[in-house]
Amino acid sequence: MALSLEEVRKVALLARLQFTEEELVELTSQMGDILKYVDQLSELDTEGIEPMAHAAEVQNVFADDIQQPSLPREVIMENAPKHDGKYYRVPAVLGDE
């Protein structure tokens, strides 16, 4: 599967990244190389093989529904790039719902 510049541009928006045109060209070529390399997986017949999403065999891990203290708001807000002491602040979402 050859990778096009337009596809890379679309993926960039999906990933919320922006690149200059030169960066996009370089990225398209680098990603293309990597994808060509990983295409070797297609030579393997994996019909009926169960995908492995976890390395651990752990199952049924739950915590009791018992409240524990939250963090003080000052502590949370200290790390926020923009806040008013009560809320996080972000640029208007403009019609984005």
């Binding site: 928006l13 990244l17 640029p91 984005d96």
Partner: peptide, 16 residues
């Protein structure tokens, strides 16, 4: 681009 999306894209592109 909405201001929010612009903020995301620019922030992430400069931060990473």
């Amino acid at each position: 681009t909405s201001p929010l999306v612009k903020m995301y894209c620019k922030t992430r592109s400069e931060g990473f």
